[in-house]
Design a protein around this nucleic acid. Structure first.
Lengths: 227, 227
DNA sequence: AGTTGAATACTTGTATACAATCATACACAT
DNA sequence: ATGTGTATGATTGTATACAAGTATTCAACT
């Protein structure tokens, strides 16, 4: 076994300027290069990134929907940033909602989806032993996305997808913490087991616990990193 | 007392084509004029509404974020529609999240916000006795928005705001049901009382119950109407 | 000095033109 | 008959031009 291919990519990868622009601005906001309160005008960003205003506009509206900036007419996009409390709140919300997702998944999952989850976990195990953080990030995403899909609830799927994106940056820090990947893998296995046994209560409970632990870990990491 | 003015309008009212276009397409989707599965191309909509593609594009991306269409490249915006199960799911999610909002509001609300909630309820009482459904809709929205704000959680506020929009249409049906407005008013009063007493547990519980009742009522209404 | 007013520069909102990509239909070969 | 390759048409993505509205600045006046 050398490098299991990872072909199930739910995200659209055909770059496009908008995606690149979005990623760049998002990164800059999250890194603090654009400070909270600062207002970004379209023309300035367009000049800075060497593209026209159109893709900038689209990226900004998307950023607004993710809550990173606030679009105020004739003023520009005001950077809001994400505080530590925001992340804490997001995890508190995720605890409830992903718990619900796990419960519904236990009720509605299909045999094929159980297999997909199992495969995701197998890959996770492989890369955890290899210590490949990059892959683990995307596999963790994958596991949770599969969970959402198995819940058979479109609104829930939609909402969690949005959320997931908005804290992607934070999650990547969390999983890089020493020992966290191993722990997450163990928790993922337990969640799958509960779902496989169609035990909705337990699935909900341990999924919430999984999120809570990730949250604790993340906040610890963030505090260690920036004071 | 004749017509208490309602000046606190959080929404931006400066029309703009995008907003109008958005409203028109949203209405058409919710009314079933554009059937689920149908794909709307930008040029077609632009011609139909007599505007250029630009505001259409922006409206469509917004509609995608609200989950009403899915933007697929080179195919157009595919209408997804909202099923009865979707609404059921949304209310299940709202039960949890708004419960959380009420709990946090009980912890963090300020004196001034308590007064605003009280005023909202007073107005609600007035228009309930008058039977002015239109006002009640916007007052119900207002009450819940105030609640979100009082929770002092930006992510929660943001998420619930999005949700609130996406089911605005459904809610307007719910509140129009006979007797529902009176019941909702009573429940709002109870919620405010719990928050005023800083009883987070109770506030969470009865808020969840409030959403559940609204959900039951709405589904009954929908079934009666189109089932 | 503070206030008011107008002029200017800037910013967003919209329209339109162009490029690149993709789906589809049709002809042709097997 | 079926599969394949190509050509055409359609659709989105991006750039740019223009219009309308707003914030800001500076000067004049009280």
């Amino acid at each position: 076994m050398q490098d299991p291919t990872f072909n199930k990519s739910s995200d659209n990868d055909t770059a496009g300027l908008r995606r690149r622009v979005f990623a760049i601005i998002e990164e800059a906001v999250l890194n603090g290069k654009y400070a909270p309160g600062e207002s970004l005008t379209e023309s300035r960003l367009a000049a800075e990134l060497g593209v026209s205003r159109t893709p900038i506009r689209e990226a900004l509206t998307q950023l607004e929907h993710e809550g990173l900036v606030q679009l105020v007419p004739n003023k520009g996009a005001v950077v809001t940033g994400i505080s530590q409390k925001d992340i804490q709140d997001i995890y508190a919300i995720r605890m409830m909602i992903e718990g619900l997702a796990a419960r519904w998944a236990a009720q509605n999952i299909q045999e094929e989806e159980l297999q997909e989850l199992q495969e995701a976990i197998d890959l996770e195990e492989f890369y955890t032993s290899k210590g490949d953080i990059g892959r683990l990030m995307s596999l963790d995403s994958n596991f949770h996305q599969l969970l959402y899909r198995a819940s058979k609830s479109r609104p829930l799927q939609h909402m969690l997808h949005t959320f997931h994106n908005s804290i992607q940056h934070a999650r990547s820090q969390s999983i890089a913490a020493p020992g966290r990947a191993q722990q997450a893998l163990k928790e993922h296995k337990a969640i799958l087991q509960a779902i496989r046994e169609r035990d909705g209560d337990r699935a909900e409970r341990i999924t919430a616990e999984h999120i809570r632990k990730a949250s604790v870990n993340l906040l610890k990491t963030m505090k260690a990193r920036q004071g």
